[in-house]
Design a protein around this nucleic acid. Structure first.
Lengths: 219, 219
DNA sequence: ACCTGAACACCGTTCAAGT
DNA sequence: ACCTGAACACCGTTCAAGT
């Protein structure tokens, strides 16, 4: 009981704990004081291992990016470019589903981690092998945007909209939206504004883009 | 000198000042205390006009969304669906270029403002008139993501990368990326990692998606 | 080398009080 | 009806001090 496990702190241990904290309680809960508490230390001790909070945030982005590279490493790269890129991106997406705080942070970092660059490097290689010019690949990365990394920010937060019926006085102002929702709801009886199959929609958008790029590939 | 202009506060005045503050100094500078100062009042006075800071953030998102609707309202909706949607989205983008803090906030809000819904409603209408099924429109909105509103989050911050030459010891690890950058740089001598023509890339991605959707429209 | 206590300048927010 | 002062619980961070 008095023999507390006294594992020394380290940058790696700090970052690991930060990821865990964000996973469980969200980015808001990730404060230096709370993080230290989780590690059984004082807040000020963290500053021996990380420069500042921004450094922690950069660090956990890198942890996630490495996780992506590991997950993606065990893919055989057979098949045509489109299947290879597609599977790589969908595998990356699985990592983001485990770290739902990550997209916000990825889009907010100004410096790009080596792990992220490695991911892009592989995509560039796959497309190059598929017959793309560098110029088109460059455009392609922009077109994919964060989708290339495996996420999109949902503009309608499903968790917030579980009860989101459109109030009748609004319906008149939004006839087209209401029409669309009505029909979608008809096809799928328990659907509301927070209705969507995120996985299917992610793949739909990805395929629209990949198919479009494939068509441009032949000049 | 003693006759200070004593305009009373109001929710609208608070939100207007908040937008201005964010425009000039970024979201980080938007604190209740600083905002009050800008208005010549005490921080606590704001709470008579807004519920809490989250309310301010929701409010300025709405201000931007209204600005989009105004900008877009004076477009004649002639032409085919693709041109109509395209011009609407590019006009919305102009608004985001004036409020560079807005994308981060839009993707972070959980409740969607009426002004945003109105924008989507119009897009749905235009696509419906263009012969789309509601089902396809629904997929289309997901595929477009935040692009439908007029922005994408840039994963590589151009301002941070103005000097970003890839260091030689990294080059070996990122052969494809380096290859691509080399060729892009060759075409355009003053380009680096922070090279991109954001407007052109936005339009490229938008067109890949719109063209892809157009092809799906005929079943 | 690694950790901590006390302290500083800043947050958002409540609440009772002023006009 | 509108605004404010004092106060509270929380931040990130510095710095001198402990082991």
């Amino acid at each position: 009981m008095t023999t507390e496990a006294r594992i020394p702190l380290s940058r790696e241990r700090v970052l690991r704990a930060a990821v865990e904290l964000a996973d469980e309680h969200g980015l808001r809960a990730l404060t230096m004081r709370r993080l230290a508490e989780e590690l059984g230390a004082e807040a000020m001790s963290l500053y021996y291992h990380v420069a500042k909070k921004e450094d922690v945030l950069d660090g956990i982005v890198d942890v996630v990016a490495q996780e992506i590279n590991e997950a993606v490493a065990r893919l055989d790269s057979g098949a045509d470019w489109k299947q290879a890129v597609r599977r790589r991106i969908l595998t990356a997406r699985e990592v983001f589903l485990r770290h739902r705080w990550a997209p916000e942070l990825f889009e907010t970092r100004s410096s790009t981690s080596l792990a992220v660059l490695r991911h892009y490097d592989t995509l560039v290689g796959l497309m190059r092998d598929g017959g793309f010019s560098y110029d088109l690949i460059h455009h392609a990365l922009h077109a994919l945007g964060s989708r290339a990394l495996g996420f999109t920010q949902e503009l309608f937060d499903p968790s917030a909209n579980q009860q989101a019926e459109v109030p009748p006085e609004l319906a008149a102002e939004l006839p087209n939206l209401v029409g669309m929702l009505g029909e979608i709801a008809h096809d799928d009886p328990d659907s509301t504004l927070g209705w969507c199959d995120d996985q299917a929609e992610f793949e739909f958008g990805l395929d629209v883009i990949l198919d479009g790029l494939d068509r441009l590939r032949g000049r």
